[in-house]
Design a protein around this nucleic acid. Structure first.
Length: 690
DNA sequence: CTGCTCTGC
DNA sequence: GGTAGCAGAGCAG
């Protein structure tokens, strides 16, 4: 809107649309940019991107204002602070280690080409029409990139060949590479299937050869073993090694000597975006607020950084300016959370949503079983049809891992959000049973023992690896040759490790809420109002039943679009009150007496939760009442039931839960009957829609 | 401590 | 037509 004066001529809106994948070195940068823009423009996704960008701009604006307000005195104060911290950080500099970062070249694509040589030389991408994981170099010339949706990629490169992802294959090759890494450093840190950090200090010493030589050797060995090429970076710490491995990619390497001057020179002109942990947003902020684009400038703006960022964030930025990074091999870390999420075509059909939820719960549970995990914090993640992401969590008193348990609590979280139109549902479990605080500075020995004794029995054996995506599942990769027991001298311990150094340093920034927070609140209110009815209904049913089938028709389609539009009138519908004559009564009932009694208002509505169940559904009613009973029992055992959530539904007990533990049992009941009532639960869609 | 958002690959 | 899945960390309350 604004902008533009000067400007040679016409506006070029695409230039301002930056995605993670648009900044690439394609042959025709401009064209790529334009295609991406054209393909995206007008979509819900695009709109959401715009919202996010607007928010970031706001953030920047705000920070800039704060920066401007700093007085000379403030600045001098923060300058001292910065100087002090820089000194402290400098004192931690360790140039005694030699780290090598290996990064496989276009890994997935390369593996696919290996198993199908006819792909060689042709532009190809691994992924689907909706998302690409990796593209080979031929495709990259066209601007095709990882994280780019396939349909855009195809536009950029009409001849692009799509190959579906096959993690089993990638894991297999990944393991081959890891065996090589292991030879150089039995404690190497796998960062993902295709990246690893290898501490080659010892090998260099023992064989008295240079890091460069080791890198050459390691790379050619990887090639021998797998037929795949990789790139390597050698540097005194992991952060720098990672940057270095990118310099001569593909199939190349770069060595940064263990020399302070060399490091400082290297870092000085380095764009901050190259640093692991500094992504699009951080880059924008640093540049927009402080005019920092290179690492060197981090130090120059030290006082501002200290003034406007949290301690940890500022420290990270300053350490980047100094070219510092992790040099130790951290003790074994256990995974901290496990999650599963799926995207689907947006729907607001509650029964359908519950079905998705149940699927996710099962997948997650299965993953947890595999690793013998159980946790007590459950987080529900939602992405609305408009791409807004929300999370809702509960922390229980018990550790859970069974699908039913997960689903039970997850459905509670979800129901509070209804009605809502979603395109993604995810579940995450954290707060694991065995994560007895991250093993504070204890000998690795012990850690490993602990790890072996504990759940690891169920760990995958040797090589039965599959594990989509999550590399963390390889947490304790053990070479087949090695018996797990032989770990006395802390061998066989490979841990996946995402960060070369700490990252995530700027969640703060927006001190007190920017405007959007307010909006968020407002939205919440609306949700709250509107959720009552459906939520109440949802409670009724047992998820499993619902999900068995949902005779949905095109009704959903009609309203699919903008749930909020629909939602609102419905939520505020005064009729609602009329419909629930017993509401206030129940409320009292609950607060005063835990021994609620269930009865059917007007002979069809549950007095406890408002669920509607005609009298002819005898069995369902019985079940429903069992449900409430179980729920009450459960409430006691999981004390804190307080699902963090809104006191919204007074009609419904706070920790109302969709227990379905025993659901299975009477599954035998006539499914016939199930469909109809289920449908009628949803006044929204049901015919009796007042 | 908990819940939620942010960030990145 | 259409934009993933997963995880760790910081921070407000």
């Amino acid at each position: 809107m604004e902008e533009s004066e000067s400007a040679s001529d016409k506006p070029r809106p695409w230039q301002s649309y930056h995605t993670v994948y648009t900044n690439a070195k394609a042959v025709d940068q401009e064209k790529v940019q334009k295609v991406v823009y054209e393909m995206s423009k007008g979509s819900k996704y695009f709109e959401n991107e715009e919202r996010k960008e607007a928010f970031i701009r706001q953030k920047i604006e705000h920070m800039r204002a704060r920066a401007d307000k700093l007085s000379a005195a403030d600045l001098s104060h923060y300058q001292k602070d910065a100087d002090k911290r820089i000194l402290e950080l400098e004192s931690t500099r360790d140039l005694s280690r030699i780290w090598l970062h290996v990064d496989m070249d276009a890994f997935y694509a390369a593996v696919e080409t290996l198993s199908n040589p006819s792909l060689k030389g042709k532009p190809m991408a691994v992924g689907s029409m909706s998302m690409i994981s990796t593209a080979n170099y031929e495709a990259r010339k066209f601007g095709v990139r990882a994280a780019m949706p396939g349909f855009i990629a195809r536009k950029l490169c009409p001849d692009l060949i799509f190959v579906p992802t096959d993690f089993k294959k990638y894991t297999y090759y990944s393991d081959l590479t890891r065996k090589v890494f292991w030879d150089y450093d039995p404690n190497f840190m796998a960062a993902s299937l295709d990246e690893a950090y290898v501490d080659i200090t010892k090998v260099c010493e023992e064989r008295s050869i240079t890091g460069a030589e080791i890198a050459e050797e390691l790379r050619s060995r990887v090639y021998e073993e797998t037929g795949l090429t990789c790139s390597a970076g050698v540097a005194p710490n992991r952060l720098l090694a990672k940057v270095c491995s990118d310099i001569n990619k593909p199939n190349g390497q770069f060595v940064l000597p263990n020399d302070r001057m060399a490091v400082m020179t290297f870092i000085s002109s380095l764009p901050i975006r190259k640093i692991g942990g500094i992504g699009k947003v951080t880059e924008n902020i640093l540049k927009g607020v402080f005019g920092v684009s290179t690492c060197e400038e981090m130090l120059q703006k030290g006082s501002f950084l200290c003034a406007l960022f949290s301690h940890s964030s500022a420290d990270f930025f300053l350490s980047v300016g100094l070219g510092l990074g992790g040099t130790d091999t951290p003790e074994v870390r256990f995974r901290k959370s496990i999650s599963s999420e799926r995207t689907f075509s947006a729907t607001e059909d509650a029964a359908l949503l519950y079905q998705k939820l149940a699927n996710i719960a099962e997948m997650l549970s299965a993953d947890m079983q595999k690793e013998g995990l159980s946790g007590r914090t459950l987080t529900l993640k939602l992405k609305t049809a408009s791409f807004e992401v929300r999370t809702r969590a509960v922390t229980l008193q018990k550790y859970i891992s069974l699908s039913d348990d997960i689903l039970k609590h997850a459905s509670n979280l979800l129901k509070a959000e209804l009605p809502i139109s979603l395109r993604l549902i995810g579940l995450r479990v954290s707060h694991f049973n065995e994560d007895k605080g991250g093993v504070p500075g204890d000998p690795k020995q012990k850690t490993l023992t602990t790890f072996l004794i504990s759940g690891d029995a169920s760990r995958r054996t040797g090589d039965d690896q599959r594990f989509l995506g999550s590399d963390l599942s390889d947490l304790h990769f053990i070479s087949e040759k090695e018996t797990a027991i032989s770990l006395d001298d802390n061998e066989t311990c490979h841990h996946e490790f995402g960060d070369p150094f700490e990252r995530k340093h700027l969640s703060d920034i927006d001190d007190k809420n920017c405007i959007s927070s307010i909006n968020a609140c407002e939205m919440e209110k609306i949700d709250e109002l509107s959720s009552n009815k459906t939520a109440a209904m949802v409670n009724t049913a047992d998820v499993k039943e619902w999900t068995t089938k949902s005779p949905k028709r095109d009704l959903s389609r009609v309203s699919e679009d903008d749930s909020s539009v629909q939602r609102e009138p419905e939520g505020s519908n005064p009729d609602r009150l009329n419909k629930e004559p017993s509401t206030s009564g129940n409320e009292e009932f609950f607060s005063s007496n835990q021994m609620e009694m269930l009865f059917w208002v007007d002979d069809y509505k549950c007095s406890l939760c408002g669920a509607e169940l005609p009298s002819s559904f005898v069995e369902e009613r019985q079940e429903h009442s069992d449900f409430h009973l179980a729920e009450r029992i459960q409430k006691e055992e999981s004390g804190t039931g307080s699902s963090s959530l809104i006191p919204r539904l007074r009609i419904v007990p706070k920790d109302y839960s969709g227990s379905q533990n025993r659901r299975k049992k009477h599954k035998s009941s006539p499914k016939q009957g199930m469909h109809l009532p289920i449908d009628s639960f949803f006044t929204k869609k049901g015919s009796r829609q007042l």
